[in-house]
């Protein structure tokens, strides 16, 4: 449930007094027991499950985000090696990024079971679209992602014949044209189980 107020809030403007029923969301911050706006836009009051009110100041244009730990991201595989694969993070949660961030999936983070028997070439190919979770901000180079959940893995992949493949098992996809089967770490897409945390 969202409630937008008529008033425009600007950075540094005091919204109200902070109490235990208020959570400072995006576009707000608390200082000295008061809630302030940190953006120019309209105030939205969102009712959360535990009876608290989430305050957010939203602008008209979509604002950029950066990947955070535990966030669900959508990424395109760019490079596969025996130890890890590199990818470009396209979106964080439901927000599309304007520019991609670098990420990598290590061999031991591909699936939850039989980690040592993972063969990267049988899990990902360049160009695949995967859903993954950020497990750490990683070293200086890239974010570390994981697909070690049933709901995570490859969601869109094209076959060698060039058409979009359909999943036939948790580790195989089939091309509808050539009927060739290819190995992938397939995501079992079940929207009800996916938690969009960190967005």
């Amino acid at each position: 449930m969202s409630m937008a107020t008529k008033d425009i809030y600007v950075p540094g403007q005091r919204i109200c007094q902070l109490d235990e029923n208020i959570i400072c969301g995006q576009g707000t911050y608390d200082k000295n027991g008061f809630v302030y706006s940190s953006r120019a836009g309209y105030l939205h009051k969102l009712q959360s499950q535990d009876g608290k009110i989430l305050f957010e100041v939203r602008t008209n244009v979509e604002t950029t985000t950066v990947p955070s730990i535990d966030a669900l991201v959508t990424a395109r595989i760019t490079n596969v090696t025996p130890r890890f694969c590199k990818c470009a993070i396209l979106s964080v949660g439901r927000t599309l990024l304007r520019e991609t961030f670098r990420g990598q999936i290590r061999k031991e983070d591909v699936r939850a079971t039989e980690k040592d028997k993972v063969e990267m070439y049988k899990c990902f190919r360049p160009g695949d679209i995967v859903v993954a979770r950020v497990i750490s901000l990683g070293d200086a180079q890239s974010y570390v992602l994981s697909t070690a959940e049933n709901e995570l893995g490859v969601v869109i992949a094209t076959s060698e014949a060039g058409s979009t493949m359909v999943p036939i098992s948790w580790c195989k996809m089939q091309c509808p044209k050539s009927l060739a089967e290819e190995f992938r770490k397939v995501a079992k897409v079940q929207p009800q189980f996916i938690q969009y945390s960190g967005t």
Partner: peptide
């Protein structure tokens, strides 16, 4: 910065 929607403490 305000136009870009970047959070700031104040103007």
């Amino acid at each position: 910065l305000i136009d870009a929607g970047i959070p700031m403490k104040d103007y």
